[in-house]
């Protein structure tokens, strides 16, 4: 769009004015870009799960071919352990986790789930065999489960009560079987 003005000498002077829709489009684009950028930044800086959060919807396909989802966990204390075969600290607690699972298995009130984070299947299977781990374990396909839990590394363990409310987070390996059992017993109830 252009307009014309007259200067003091009486000559016509051309004045170029940018159209309103063009300005609006530029501003809209800029604002939309900043909003998207802000949301992405917020998501990355959100931090991990907090006590009181609810168990995210998860679907785990185990190495045995079973599919486990939230419906299978109803009314049970849920222990979710993230590990990897390349993770040395994970090895420190592997035996304790298995022992705890065997201890609670007969009660049918506790479920242990092992999630192999960014792991390769042959190595993950070898790890499970090495530590004779028998509770359900599977690969975190597409890192969807670890993304939902917003984990910061491995090993990490999340313990949910029977209403699937997060009650305990262990960053790093459990120090002993007694420590793990003490936490589970707290939320197991009578």
């Amino acid at each position: 769009m252009s307009d014309q003005l007259t200067d003091q000498s009486g000559k016509l002077k051309s004045l170029h004015i940018r159209p309103l829709w063009g300005k609006l489009l530029i501003w809209f684009g800029l604002v939309a870009f900043l909003i998207i950028l802000g949301l992405a930044l917020l998501r990355t800086q959100q931090g991990g799960m907090a006590i009181g959060d609810v168990l995210p919807n998860l679907t785990l396909t185990t190495f045995d071919g079973q599919t486990i989802n939230n419906n299978d966990l109803t009314g049970k204390v849920v222990v979710v352990n993230f590990w990897a075969s390349w993770c040395k600290p994970c090895e420190q607690e592997a035996a304790e986790l298995e022992e705890a699972w065997r201890y609670y298995q007969s009660t049918e009130k506790v479920v242990f789930l092992g999630i192999a984070y960014v792991d390769t299947e042959p190595e993950a299977r070898a790890y499970l065999q090495k530590y004779q781990i028998s509770y359900p374990n599977g690969l975190d396909l597409g890192t969807r489960i670890s993304d939902d839990f917003r984990i910061s590394g491995v090993p990490e363990t999340y313990i949910f009560d029977r209403d699937h409310v997060l009650q305990f987070i262990q960053i790093g390996p459990f120090q002993s079987l007694a420590q793990l059992k003490a936490v589970v017993d707290t939320y197991l109830g009578p």
Binding site: A84, S85, W86, V118, D119, T120, P122, E123
Partner: peptide
Amino acid sequence: GTQACEQWRGL
């Protein structure tokens, strides 16, 4: 150079 990446290259 991590073990995880070494496993990936092996794969």
